[in-house]
């Protein structure tokens, strides 16, 4: 573990945002990918831990925040984009009920990236799975391949996009883990918006991060873990 810390220090020394980093470990966590001229680092793996026991049924705050941040219409027609959605589930045996948000799970081995003919779907070094819309030809094969139905296709021309979140007709899109915020050292809009703190965002690779500590101490699962995709989003209490 000491080695690990040393390595991280060394790495940080070489990057630009060093000055801001030494202040507190919490900031350091985000500082790594923030505005650095080296870009996303493979030493980071961004992830989320969702505590379903804190996720209130009927609460839609994360969805609303995502829509606002990323400029989605908020419509729920079959042709509307939904980057994050609330799912209400009920266990058939016993009837236990849960509510949870579902979005791109940012897999380590993402099927969408495997199937994309043009490498438009790709995984950043820090584990965030994105669609490069400059390359997307709109074939929708990734939507067929995603086990979480996390992706949407833009069915209509769009106007008035967020300058930080380009989106456009004829391409596929999904949760970006608010990459434009994460690169600034902020956390994703959904995590920010959750009043119950059910969404914990952080660096899974940093043993001292809050998320890594919690994953070590509480039981959490990956959805469709049988597929061995190793998603970066984990669920607690499922």
């Amino acid at each position: 573990m000491i080695d690990n810390t040393l390595n991280r220090r060394q790495f940080l020394k070489s990057s630009v945002g060093v000055a801001a980093v030494a202040v507190a470990p919490g900031i350091l966590l985000y500082g790594m990918a923030n505005g650095s001229s080296e870009g996303a680092s493979a030493k980071v793996r961004w992830g989320m831990l969702i505590d379903t026991s804190h996720c209130a049924e009927g609460c839609n705050d994360c969805v609303t925040a995502c829509n606002k941040e990323n400029g989605l219409s908020g419509g729920v027609a079959a042709t509307d984009s939904q980057w994050i959605r609330k799912i209400e589930i009920k266990e058939i045996a016993g009837g236990r009920q849960l509510s949870l948000p579902m979005m791109c799970q940012h897999c380590e081995n993402p099927p969408c990236v495997d199937v994309c003919p043009t490498t438009a779907s790709f995984k950043r070094a820090d584990g965030i799975v994105l669609v490069d819309k400059h390359r997307c030809i709109g074939c929708r094969y990734c939507m067929m391949a995603c086990p979480y139905k996390a992706r949407s296709f833009v069915h209509e021309a769009l106007h008035d996009q967020n300058p930080d979140v380009p989106r456009g007709k004829g391409t596929v899109e999904s949760c970006t883990m608010c990459v434009h915020r994460v690169d600034q050292g902020l956390q994703p809009a959904c995590a920010d918006a959750c009043a119950n703190k059910a969404i914990l965002f952080g660096n899974l690779n940093d043993p001292d991060s809050e998320i890594a500590k919690k994953i070590r101490t509480v039981a959490s699962v990956q959805v469709r873990a049988d597929l061995r995709l190793n998603p970066g989003v984990r669920y607690q209490g499922l």
Binding site: R85, K86, I87, E88, I89, M102, V223
Partner: peptide
């Protein structure tokens, strides 16, 4: 429907 949560009844705004 895609089986995302086997063993659960599922509903959402996205056709789950």
């Amino acid at each position: 429907p895609l089986s995302i949560f086997p063993g659960f009844e599922v509903k959402s705004t996205f056709g789950d």
